[in-house]
Nucleic acid binder design. Structure first.
Lengths: 230, 230
DNA sequence: TCTTGTTAGATTGTCGACAATCTGCTTCCT
DNA sequence: AGGAAGCAGATTGTCGACAATCTAACAAGA
């Protein structure tokens, strides 16, 4: 028999598709923070009954990008400067841990994948596709977490990523069109290929701080005015 | 007007109560790892329809203590030695971070709460109530995460805790009755009250390693035999 | 005018029934 | 006997309707 390993077939439940649709809408900023999700309206738009929709919403609530108040509704989480600060400071710790765990596991496949994802970021940058740029940048960043061979770390990082992606999307959306053209990931990739682990950890921390300040300033601005309802 | 701040009233949805019931059943080991949860049977036992039950199960899936396979069923997660190892190694990192963040925020209220939780552990130990002992020990341990003033950290730690509690419960259940009588938390509490942050961090790490080895050995034993279905 | 009670509308929470899918057994064919 | 096809039962996924709750507007009384 041929040695072909098949990937698992897609989840064919409505619920799974709804989750994907809603997540995308939230992470790309199509659904604004604080906005209420009307079950009837959404279920009609998606041509789906409320049962799978509600189940999907429960998942996203646990995922941390929706919040639910009994008998009042389910809302996109509000983005406060403190949330961003919290997420970032924890992210630094996770990065340091991920690099440490990944370091000894690096091999050719790791480097290849690193290059592949790096290229994807550059492609998105050339295309001026800001949404995809955020997505690919986070995927590049996520490689160390995937490679660290720690399922709990990976899970944790993915949860964090959801929010970070949302923050970035909002940020980009606010100051439309301005794409950071120069490649800030060059050094990061180089260090991950090198021999100095501490240097890689230090860079990850500093690099993160860079984007972070901008984002924080934006979020502080947001907090002045109240969030809009549906 | 009197200066009385009311706490928010309890969630009165069936869903919330179901979540609490199921979580408790899983974390105390009443529901075994790998066991299938039959929706119809459980909903009849609880006198509830399947809709809120299913929503509750989705939440617990995202919480990481249940796992779901479309059209096949929802199961209590399997406990592997690697899972425990992963959870513990990440927990160390989070502890170190939490202590660092908490350190400057410690005040009298912190110390009081620390003592209160420490006393709760000792009480459970005196009562030979192993389940409660695990619960209170984790609550004592969790104070630094609550006090660190980082919502994302707290959330992450709570997710981890769910699983740790489950692991411990299984462990305790396996070697029934053997309660570690001597108080291993004494030093921990003392260090958190002291002036040497690095020492506190070091102790947290070492203390964890202690329980951990035992737990790991137990889990390795488990993996020899297949998990039971419903 | 301010507060309190009432009511109508909208929305969320829950229910019971039906459809889709899986599993194990039986049957039939070679 | 071995294996594929098909059937029956059980279980999960989805639907539409009903019940419980909230919100906001309005009316009544102090």
């Amino acid at each position: 028999m041929a040695k072909l390993d098949f990937s698992p077939i897609a989840d064919t439940t409505r619920r799974a598709e709804i989750v994907a649709l809603l997540r995308r809408a939230i992470l790309t900023g199509q659904l604004e923070p604080g906005q209420k999700l009307n079950e009837l309206r959404i279920s009609e738009q998606m041509r789906v009954s409320r049962a799978p929709l509600r189940e999907a919403m429960r998942e996203l609530v646990q995922e941390g990008i929706l919040t639910s108040i009994p008998y009042a509704g389910t809302f996109v989480i509000d983005v406060t400067a403190k949330d961003i600060d919290d997420a970032y400071s924890l992210n630094k710790v996770l990065d340091e841990f991920a690099i440490e765990r990944t370091w000894k596991l690096r091999d050719q496949r790791f480097f290849d994948e690193l290059d592949r994802r790096h290229e994807a970021v550059q492609q998105a940058t050339r295309d001026r596709d800001t949404t995809r740029q955020i997505e690919t940048a986070l995927q590049l960043h996520g490689l160390i977490h995937e490679w660290a061979d720690n399922s709990v770390l990976l899970e944790t990082w993915q949860r964090l990523t959801s929010r970070l992606q949302m923050y970035f999307a909002l940020h980009q959306q606010a100051r439309k069109e301005v794409v950071p053209a120069e490649d800030v990931h060059e050094t990061y990739v180089a260090l991950l290929k090198g021999d100095d682990m501490r240097a890689a950890q230090r860079h990850a921390r500093e690099h993160i701080d860079l984007d972070f300040e901008e984002l924080l300033a934006y979020a502080r601005g947001l907090e002045q005015r109240p969030s809009k309802g549906a």
